[in-house]
Design a protein around this nucleic acid. Structure first.
Length: 426
RNA sequence: GUGGAUAUGGUGAAGCGGUUAACACACCGGAUUGUGGCUCCGGCAUGCGUGGGUUCAAGUCCCACUAUCCACCCCA
């Protein structure tokens, strides 16, 4: 094989695509029920959008973006996440002038230039929702509730919701100072990454995975310790509402998400058994983002869920989905006249919404039956010169292994009745 | 960017220096002429990721490269 797909990309082929279709259906369904509307934005944007929207200090912007110059020398970036684009579209289309809040969801591929591993790809898919224009803690919980509901409907078990509040810029500044003071005499023991975080984004030292740093910060002040009265009240209410809707959550003061735009509520959903990358969804509140990219001051909150990771959990937990693509009917034909009549018949059956296949390989009857068996067709209609001459057709039930002759003219009606009868099971 | 493991047909894999590269599954064909799933029979890699090297002899040893998988950082 000469040409292979680029590193970190995936071909989704028959056998797997059914799972994607199923996931996508569930997404559309749950979003509709919660009153969210789909938004589709370009898969590439001006690089500046992500630099400003995601944040210059983030790994995404620093090392993971697929950026290139187009023929007009514009710097273009394949979107690494969805929130910045949705906010841009919200501003550009003046959705703030319509009924608020804007409750939006999206679904599609994202791109990050990273080394691959289990659950990490260069092109991956996210489903996400965003609520723009509402700052009530109830909104935070509606968002988490939708997410949780969705995951429960899929039948996923053993998931954990981690939640934290990182405060607003004001209380975060206070936290930064306290953290700095706390680390004053420990500076030289921090890892190089954390040393640079110290000045750029000290909060992120809290979730450094380096063991030495972990030890240093065990008793460090967390953002929860320094919440201002307003943020504290918001945080208390979020917890209250979460309990109200019976969502078990775990407060994780070290949960400090990588994207610069998060404020107040931050959360993640973790799963086991899918490798080191165990976060299947992440989200939070980003009240300053819309303003940052040139819109009116607008509170916002949302999450993004990784579809590959959710599928990995489903596979790990052996959650099967029904295959609805099995053929109902396979038309087996012998001879050219039968071929023509069978082709016509297949067309009629398809018009009735019955999945109908027919031989396209010039196989003999035996081969056609074998094919019907392979593709899981329930009925085979056998039509040859003899049947044609008598004006009949043989209906073979592949599951029972039985067959009968019926009048050719009644075929569609007969099959329709069979398939709609309560006994019919693929 | 860094580290580890692995690279043999459509798939899973044996082979670990010496004649024709096991085996299983899948696939294709056949077992009386128009009937599937079971069974039986037959077919299916001049080739062992790529390029060098060592050797009388290499899938088998050495080197480089590439790819894949996993892991670190971080995240979906």
């Amino acid at each position: 094989m000469l040409i292979k797909r680029p590193k970190g990309t995936q071909d989704i082929i028959p056998g797997t695509i059914e799972k994607w279709h199923y996931l996508e259906e569930q997404i559309h369904k749950v979003c509709r029920e919660y009153g969210y509307q789909e938004i589709r934005t370009p898969v590439f944007e001006a690089t500046e959008l992500f630099q400003r929207g995601v944040g210059e200090t983030t790994d995404i912007v620093n090392k993971e973006m697929y950026t290139f110059l187009d023929k007009g020398q514009r710097s273009i970036t394949l979107r690494p996440e969805g929130t910045a684009s949705v906010c841009r579209a919200y501003v550009e289309n003046k959705l703030y002038a319509q009924t608020l809040p804007a409750k939006l969801y999206y679904l599609g591929p994202m791109f990050r230039y990273e080394n691959t591993q289990a659950g990490r790809y260069r092109q991956f898919h996210q489903f996400g929702i965003e609520v723009l224009g509402a700052d009530d803690p109830l909104v935070d919980v509606e968002v988490i509730n939708l997410l949780w509901d969705f995951l429960q409907r899929l039948g996923l078990r053993g998931l954990q919701v981690h939640i934290n509040s990182v405060g607003c810029p004001q209380c975060r500044a206070v936290h930064g100072e306290k953290l700095l003071a706390f680390l004053m005499d420990k500076k030289d023991k921090l890892c190089p990454d954390c040393l640079s975080r110290l000045t750029r984004n000290p909060m992120r030292i809290l979730d450094c995975k380096n063991k030495d740093c972990q030890a240093l910060i065990t008793n460090a002040p967390t953002t929860l310790d320094t919440l201002c009265p307003s943020c504290r009240q918001h945080w208390e209410k979020v917890q209250h509402y979460l309990k109200l809707v019976n969502i078990d959550f775990m407060i994780n003061p070290k949960l400090v998400r990588g994207l610069d735009y998060y404020q107040k509520t931050a959360f993640e959903v973790m799963a086991e058994g899918i490798g080191a990358q165990s976060a299947i969804c992440g989200g939070g509140r980003y009240d300053g983002l819309v303003e940052e990219i040139g819109g009116p001051p607008t509170p916002g909150i949302g999450f993004a869920a990784g579809l590959e990771r959710i599928l990995a959990v489903m596979q790990n937990q052996k959650i099967e989905i029904e295959d609805r693509n099995k053929a109902g009917v396979m038309v087996a034909i012998l001879g050219d006249k039968a071929r023509q009549e069978g082709f016509r018949l297949a067309g009629q059956l398809r018009q009735k919404g019955i999945i109908t296949l027919m031989d396209l390989m010039g196989r003999g009857l035996k081969g056609q039956l074998k094919y019907a068996d392979r593709v899981g067709a329930r009925y085979v209609l056998i039509l040859g010169e003899e049947e044609l001459a008598k004006g009949i057709i043989i209906v073979r039930d592949m599951k029972i292994g039985d067959q009968q002759e019926i009048a050719l003219a009644n075929t569609v009606e007969f099959i329709e009745k069979q398939i709609n009868s309560s006994e019919f099971e693929i």
